[in-house]
């Protein structure tokens, strides 16, 4: 059966809330702000299937999640896309699970290229992977998602400088600009400021789009693809909302790394349509 992107995204948000509720830990807020963009990425944008995925990325598009704490959205999408059984989502954060609290490669979960969790590292890794594609003549694209709060890490700006210096124009980097982090808003915590101006000053092509409107997401990726291959790395700043999709979780830092109670989970389920069938708990 074919599902629409909003139907998939609704199921992914259900998965996220149910996973963190069952695990009594995890990071729902940023997972839900990134859900729509990553749903589009996995189901429409990337040239990769569960069948031809390989960690080396040879001959396929590659995705790196740098903000590893939003592992629930990654795991749900990989499962819903067919990388591993949906039933495995029930093992999230359990002892022995391939679905570690933050993504890892040591347990062999298909679709994961690199461990992430300690922030600020994934952009550098993606730049290395993109340069490797250029070296080997692979015309495919490398995608990476970083958090807005994550952009407070110094390594992000080391990487930003390097990508422009090396004209890494087969890379589409994305920021989930939901304006929230653990201790408050990104403005209150660290004065994140004008991300567009910052990335442009570092020599990047910057695109901004609504990260919750699938038409805008499609246009954002289309624009990014037009800007590839022109000698500059591309950054899409996705305007999003933390906890998007559930009214009491939306727009606040409170749900960055907190699990809902059973009652709150039940309330969230009323707001998110079950489309593809929940995994069994």
């Amino acid at each position: 059966m074919n599902y629409t992107l909003p139907q998939i995204a609704s199921q992914v948000r259900r998965d996220i809330v149910r996973m963190v509720t069952a695990a009594a830990s995890g990071h729902p807020g940023g997972s839900m702000s990134a859900t729509d963009v990553l749903t589009y990425l996995f189901f429409k944008e990337m040239n990769v299937t569960p069948e031809n995925w390989c960690r080396s990325g040879e001959g396929i598009d590659q995705f790196f999640l740098s903000a590893g704490h939003i592992s629930p959205v990654l795991y749900s999408l990989l499962a819903r896309r067919g990388y591993f059984p949906v039933a495995e989502l029930a093992t999230f954060r359990r002892f022995g699970s391939r679905l570690q609290g933050h993504p890892s490669v040591d347990k062999g979960l298909p679709g994961v290229n690199q461990a992430a969790g300690s922030l600020g590292q994934g952009l550098s890794v993606a730049i290395g992977a993109a340069l490797a594609k250029k070296l080997s003549g692979d015309p495919n694209t490398v995608y990476v998602l970083i958090g807005d709060g994550e952009s407070e890490e110094g390594q992000i700006w080391e990487a930003a400088m390097s990508a422009a210096h090396y004209k890494v124009d087969n890379l589409i980097a994305m920021t989930d600009w939901n304006h929230q982090q653990i201790d408050g808003t990104t403005e209150d915590v660290a004065g994140l400021g004008d991300l567009r101006a910052k990335w442009e000053a570092f020599g990047w092509t910057v695109i901004e789009a609504d990260g919750h409107d699938f038409t805008a997401i499609e246009q954002g990726f289309a624009e990014a693809n037009r800007r590839k291959g022109l000698g500059r790395p591309v950054m899409i700043l996705w305007h999003t909302e933390m906890g998007h999709g559930v009214d009491f979780m939306a727009g606040t830092c409170k749900w960055h790394g907190k699990n809902p109670s059973a009652d709150q989970c039940a309330e969230a389920m009323k707001q998110l349509e079950e489309t593809m069938g929940d995994f069994a708990l």
Binding site: S56, Q121, L123, S124, V125, A126, G128, A132, G154, H165
Partner: peptide, 24 residues
């Protein structure tokens, strides 16, 4: 096959990891 990364050691480690994933 040579990359001058500049005074940015953390980024250099990450870039190398990405290249290694690709088989280099």
């Amino acid at each position: 096959r040579f990359f001058e990364v500049g005074i940015a050691e953390a980024n250099m480690v990450g870039m190398a990891a990405g290249m290694a994933i690709a088989g280099y």
